[in-house]
Amino acid sequence: MNIVTLCGLGVGSSLMLKMTVEEILEEEGIKGRVENLDLGSAKAKQADLYVVSKDMETNLRDVEGKIIFIENLTDKEEVRKKFLEIVK
C-alpha cells in the first residue's frame, strides 16, 4: 500500500513518522511504500493512507482518502493501533 506522512515543512516530523510507519510495516509483515511530504502537497498526492499529527486535522479537510491522526508523534504504539484498525 501507498502511505504518505505529512507535516508543515515536510522534512522534520513527517520523516520521523515515516520511519515509525516503516518499522510497523516491517514488524507486521505488510508490504508498503512510505513517503513524507508537506501539508500543501497532500492534495496532489494519491495515497491509500495519510498519517498526520492530530493538530493538523483542519488542514486536511479537503483531502480525499483515509487519514489517521496521531496525538503523540513519538508513540509508536498509538500509530500501530490506529494503523492496524484501518488495515484490517
Binding site: C7, G12, S13, L73
Partner: peptide, 15 residues
C-alpha cells in the same frame, strides 16, 4: 532530540 511539531500536540493553544 526531535523537531518542533513533535511538541505541538501537547499544547496546541499555547502554540
Amino acid at each position: 532530540a526531535l523537531d518542533v511539531p513533535v511538541f505541538f500536540s501537547y499544547a496546541p493553544k499555547s502554540l
